[in-house]
Design a protein around this nucleic acid. Structure first.
Length: 223
DNA sequence: GCGACAG
DNA sequence: ATCTTGTCGC
């Protein structure tokens, strides 16, 4: 067989293949922001109403106003189990189905999960950003990989997330006074500073950035 | 071998 | 993610 070139649209069928694919695709992730204007941001989330069904949602908001301008959903069968570190193989297929229904082409993606703050530097946000060829930011509610200190207690408080080599791979960010922080990391085509700035500018009065909250609601989650 | 582990 | 009411705090 001819050796396959890295193809972001290819999906693993076994955990070991998924891991191999992540290691391969990691090399294509770009951690630099080109300064392009942001007019629309797409937030994504997937909900699992039953064990075998997935409901993916995409919400596009204007930026920086954060007005919802378009939404898309897709509900279908689950095709991959939840395995820590392999979340993208479970959530990307339904997300792409919803994505196809969009009319507006967003400038940036906000994903509910890690970007490069991942055991192999290739979390959901990196994978989806690479597949769609768009800048993306990982925004998770809990840590998956790396070590960090407790950030300051007030909104804007932050601390670096570091890998085993002491490299910064993300930011633990307090988005409101006194709430648990969120975990922000580069997905693709962006730098960490810009990612944190955008996440903060998308957060008005809740812990979770407004666009992600809207996507979470559309997908079927509570609050 | 043991524990940790996005959603 | 999901199972789920009241309750604590601003």
């Amino acid at each position: 067989m001819k050796p396959r070139k890295a193809d972001p649209a290819r999906f693993a069928v076994t955990p070991s293949e998924g891991i191999a694919l992540q290691k391969e695709l990691k090399g294509l992730v770009r951690k630099h922001w080109d300064g392009r204007p942001i007019r629309h941001i797409a937030a994504t989330d997937v909900h699992f109403p039953a064990r075998s069904s997935a409901r993916a949602a995409v919400v596009i908001v204007s930026y920086p106003v954060l007005e919802v301008v378009e939404t898309a959903v897709h509900e279908g069968p689950v095709t991959y189990p939840y395995i820590p570190g392999l979340l993208s193989f479970r959530e990307i297929p339904p997300l792409l189905m919803a994505w196809q229904k969009l009319k507006i082409a967003p400038d940036l993606l906000l994903c509910d999960g890690q970007g490069i703050a991942h055991p192999r530097g290739f979390g959901l946000a990196s994978h989806l950003g690479l597949v769609l060829g768009l800048p993306s930011i990982g925004c998770a509610k809990s840590p998956l990989f790396g070590s960090f200190d407790e950030p300051g207690p007030l909104k804007g408080g932050r601390a670096p997330i570091r890998d085993g080599s002491n490299r910064t791979i993300g930011t633990v960010l307090r988005t409101r006074d006194g709430v648990n922080p969120i975990f922000v990391s580069v997905g693709h085509l962006i730098d960490l500073r810009t990612a944190v700035r955008i996440v903060l500018s998308c957060t008005t009065r809740f812990r979770i950035p407004d666009p992600l909250r809207a996507a979470h609601r559309l997908a079927g989650g509570n609050l």
